[in-house]
């Protein structure tokens, strides 16, 4: 069955044939312009008004609840908590998945990309308002590094250009508009998100701020901050 020369010849033909069929390709990362603050604000304000009741139906129909849980608290460490997340941030996330800003080398995000591609703006607004209406609960108990992390989160460390997380994400980690809530977030998810920002694998924030403001942090500090936020509720 294997005549290699024949195979490669025909593969050559095949590439030509494929170029005539334009698949809405699901394997290549689209080129999307990075967010500017103004463009993001405009996009979010152009979204329709969300409806909590309808959002609950969307969460079931699009099977959000299969991983993120009925109220946005995930079943396992793999998936972010979206319980009590700001409506604006969940909408932004879904738009980023849909438009290709949030692929994190596609194969890691393909579930969310496909789900987002199949949702309307109205569905996104509804489901985001549903999860925003849920109360945030803690994922874990405070750990030994709680106080150390709290100091970093509250005041930062200007000698290393580390900004105070609380400055944007809120004193209680409650978030603010398109700036996500971090209270109750899953620590494993938090850590890998920080890695993704530092490796420029994730670049869907405005002006690359997350990388700039946090690249002075050590891996131990990132873990401590992750555990700190995981223990908060609001």
């Amino acid at each position: 069955m294997k005549n290699n020369l024949l195979v490669s010849t025909i593969i050559g033909l095949n590439v030509f044939a494929m170029s005539q069929v334009t698949h809405a390709s699901s394997t290549e990362k689209p080129q999307v312009p990075a967010w500017t603050g103004a463009a993001l604000a405009e996009t979010i304000s152009a979204m329709p008004k969300g409806d909590i009741q309808r959002g609950q139906v969307v969460a079931k129909d699009m099977m959000c609840i299969a991983c993120h849980g009925e109220q946005g608290k995930p079943y396992t460490m793999n998936f972010p908590s979206i319980q009590g997340q700001t409506q604006e941030y969940t909408m932004k996330t879904m738009i980023d998945y849909r438009e290709g800003r949030r692929w994190e080398s596609y194969k890691r995000a393909d579930v969310m990309v496909k789900i987002a591609e199949n949702m309307t703006d109205q569905q996104i607004a509804d489901v985001s308002s549903f999860y925003a209406a849920q109360t945030t609960t803690a994922w874990q108990k405070p750990t030994a590094t709680y106080e150390q992390a709290k100091a970093l989160v509250t005041t930062g460390d200007m000698s290393r250009m580390v900004m105070a997380c609380a400055g944007c994400h809120g004193a209680e980690g409650q978030g603010n508009g398109v700036t996500p809530a971090l209270a109750g977030q899953i620590p494993q998810y938090f850590v890998r998100t920080m890695q993704a920002f530092h490796e420029k694998d994730r670049v869907n924030d405005v002006n690359g701020m997350m990388d700039q403001f946090t690249k002075g942090l050590t891996p131990e500090e990132i873990q401590a901050i992750a555990d700190y936020y995981a223990s908060l509720m609001c």
Partner: peptide, 22 residues
């Protein structure tokens, strides 16, 4: 590296049909 209780609870929920599954 997933905590064992998360795996066990998920599997039980799948088994009972309380967690939606593919």
């Amino acid at each position: 590296g997933m905590p064992a209780e998360q795996i066990i609870e998920s599997m039980m929920a799948f088994k009972k049909g309380t967690r939606p599954a593919i």
